[in-house]
Design a binder for these strands. Structure first.
Length: 701
DNA sequence: CAGTGAGCGAGCTTCCGCTTGACTT
């Protein structure tokens, strides 16, 4: 054997992607992964030289030195390096930084940039055959973005430390998300529900019974404001006959939806599967990295952080062939095309199954429950997106009873179309069966059901709706939607109540300060304007440090002004309580610490007594301990509730104790949520069957 | 699906955006 031929080194960001590409390229290529950014600003200080044109000081990211060293080693052995980081702004920066590192060691090594927007053999080949240079304008745009975010975050955060509390944070993205949540909360609070009543008629034709809603009264929309109005209406209707006045059929074509982007996947997974954004991404990552299907490991889905609905040609053909075999009459003449959408960076395809032939049923035995659910909605949405539209036929009946018109409608899908592919994603439409009739027919009136309602105000943000809003406003990226929610929770700016995001007192104070003092930065338009400027930098119309300067000067002035004028509100978060310090007898206050709330003696610093907040008495017979919130080591993980006498008493529960005592047995009640009862309270005593549903919050759908 | 268990305030925090494992400080 002679000397081994030198290889081409190709570098991508994701290791799973590297494995696939290595398979596609075969001999002559080594494919490695950078795992994201390797070079960045240090965390511990600003590291931006304002005087010298905002020049950032870059270092190797903590923990990434090993990867960088390994890449360098491989580059030394290679005859050529192809930088194939993602085809977007951040990817270009990664390519640039790697090139700089490699060049320092060896200035004769050919280093090229290649890019592709999908992982298919053709796309990879095409890219490898047409290498280009790193686009320095794009790199500068990323630099501007990075520097700007650092300047905003590292100027606003310390201001909060000084004025409110140590460890707090603010930034271009998280603070806008917080603002949205806080403003929504104000709307929720100021909304005054109004009472109204509806009237339903139970009717019969021959032996068929059905009900219809009153939609008109004396030719106008009924305004039944209270029980008296409903009763008056009922009285007039008494004894009146019912005739069919109008009957009509309307048809509506329903298009399938495009395949998933990250944001849409998180929304559907939240609304249909009750997954948090974080959970969705964790499971999607597992599906992407690959599941052992029998003996081989297969990545079940394409990359899960994408802003595009684009689908590769090969995948379209596979889908069409699958649909043609499975539902031949639902295959459209031509493939349904979906574009990347406005503002999308389009570095990856939509999220779709890698092989449509891996139907949810066929991979069921290899996946756990959550993986299967998530995979199913991804598969269904993709397959449906390549099928023909459905046709919904709605039959509407207007029935006259006295001065009222009652309406009933029923929808049925004349053409099922793409809906044939849907199971988990199918919308549940409950429509009644309506007997066939003709105009003028008379019906039997069996009775009326008046019902009290209240107008419902705006609903709080959930994972699904905050991600939707952020995406629509162009704030944040697919890789950051889930972390944005996590950071708001970690900082105690927001808590999750059932699935709703509710701001805390701290969150509201922070938001108020930021909105007051930095209205143009903590603003949904700020990112829009920034993106426009970044585009100008990318097109070489604007120099990056000019752009940064334009943003930073007013920011710096505002920061200085607030620093000098804003009164510190430290301590206002301490909440007085009825708990008495057992060491000095002074009252204790509830205070937020690094790991959550705790009780502290108001005599601090003379008395340094602290303790966790007792939520209930320990239910163990003979135990005098209190139940307190605990967390797994490291702070992360689900909260649970245990006895202060641990380890002598090892009582624990996952359900949050309430201050209420069970009227039956005297043990404490806990909050529970399940599908059947929604949110309710239950006795912690396993031998007690007490259930408390009254006053529980309603479960919104 | 199992098992989970500090001390916290007077210290050194923080940004956004890429990407996955996880060891000594």
């Amino acid at each position: 054997m002679g000397k081994q031929k030198k290889q081409t080194l190709l570098i991508v960001e994701s290791p799973a992607k590297a494995r696939t590409i290595e398979r596609y390229l075969g001999d002559g290529y080594t494919v490695a992964a950078s795992m994201g950014h390797l070079i960045d600003l240090p965390k511990s200080r600003l590291a931006i030289d304002i005087e010298k044109g905002y020049e950032p000081e870059y270092i190797t990211v903590r923990g990434k030195a090993k990867i960088l060293k390994e890449l360098q080693k491989q580059a030394n052995k290679a005859e050529e390096v192809l930088l194939a980081s993602d085809n977007d702004r951040e990817g270009e920066a990664i390519a640039f930084q790697l090139k700089k590192v490699f060049e320092k060691k060896n200035d004769t090594l050919p280093i090229k940039r290649i890019s592709f927007n999908e992982i298919t053999p053709q796309a990879i080949r095409e890219a490898v055959d047409h290498p280009t240079e790193v686009d320095i304008n794009k790199v500068n745009a990323q630099k501007a973005r990075r520097v700007l975010d650092r300047l905003v975050g590292y100027n606003l955060s310390p201001l909060l430390w000084k004025k409110v509390k140590n460890g707090l944070s603010a930034g271009r993205v998280q603070s806008v998300a917080l603002r949205l949540i806080c403003e929504r909360e104000k709307e929720v609070e100021s909304f005054i529900p109004e009472e109204y009543w509806t009237l339903e008629a139970l009717l019969a034709k021959d032996r068929h019974e059905f009900s219809a809603q009153m939609v008109l009264w004396e030719g106008e929309k009924p305004a039944l404001k209270n029980e008296e109005a409903a009763a008056a209406c009922l009285k007039e209707l008494e004894g009146k006959t019912c005739t069919l006045e109008d009957l009509r059929m309307t048809r509506r074509q329903v298009n399938p939806k495009p395949p998933y982007t990250t944001s849409k996947l998180q929304q559907d997974a939240a609304n249909r599967l009750a997954f948090t954004s974080r959970k969705t991404m964790q499971i999607a990552q597992q599906l992407y990295e690959g599941i052992a299907l029998g003996s081989s490991r297969v990545g079940l889905i394409t990359y899960m952080r994408t802003d595009s609905t684009r689908v590769s040609k090969g995948a379209l053909e596979d889908a069409r062939s699958f649909i043609g075999k499975t539902w031949p009459d639902s295959l459209p003449e031509k493939a349904n095309l979906y574009s990347a959408g406005k503002g999308a960076q389009d570095a990856h395809e939509a999220i779709r199954p890698t092989y449509v032939t891996n139907t949810p049923d066929s991979v069921k035995e290899y996946l756990n429950r959550d993986q299967l659910k998530l995979y199913s909605i991804i598969w269904e949405r993709f397959v449906a997106s390549q099928m023909v539209q459905a046709v919904a036929a709605t039959e509407t009946l207007d029935l006259k009873i006295g001065k009222g018109i009652f309406r009933v409608s029923a929808t049925r899908y004349e053409v099922k179309g793409f809906r044939k592919a849907l199971k988990l994603l199918k919308s549940k439409e409950q429509t009644q069966k309506i007997p066939s009739m003709k105009t003028g027919d008379s019906l039997k009136v069996l009775g009326f059901t008046p019902e009290q309602h209240f107008t419902s105000g705006p609903s709080r943000y959930t994972d699904a709706s905050i991600v939707k809003t952020l995406e629509e406003k162009g704030i944040g990226r697919p890789s950051t939607y889930a972390p944005i929610i996590s950071v708001l929770l970690d900082r105690y700016y927001v808590v999750r109540k059932t699935r709703q995001l509710v701001p805390t007192t701290l969150g509201r104070i922070i938001s108020d300060i930021l909105v007051q003092s930095f209205p143009d930065i903590v603003n949904v338009d700020f990112t829009v304007k920034m993106e426009q400027k970044l585009d100008a930098v990318e097109d070489n119309r604007v120099e990056w440090h000019h752009m940064v300067d334009e943003f930073y000067r007013p920011l710096k002035d505002q920061v200085d002004h607030v620093e000098a004028t804003l009164e510190s509100v430290k301590g206002i978060l301490d909440e007085p309580t009825d708990f008495v310090c057992e060491e000095c007898g002074r009252p204790m206050v509830k205070r937020l610490g690094r790991y959550g709330f705790f009780l502290a003696c108001s005599g601090f610093p003379e008395c340094r007594n602290t303790k966790p907040i007792p939520l209930a008495d320990c239910p163990r017979p003979g135990c005098d301990g209190k139940i307190v919130a605990r967390k797994k080591q490291g702070g992360r993980g689900k909260e649970f509730y245990g006895c202060t006498n641990y380890p002598a008493c090892d009582f624990i529960t996952h359900y949050k104790p309430t201050s209420m005592k069970c009227p039956k047995c005297g043990y404490f009640l806990v909050e529970k949520t399940d599908k059947k009862r929604g949110n309710h309270k239950e006795c912690i005593n396993p031998d007690c069957d007490f259930l408390h549903t009254a006053g529980a919050e309603e479960d919104e759908d």
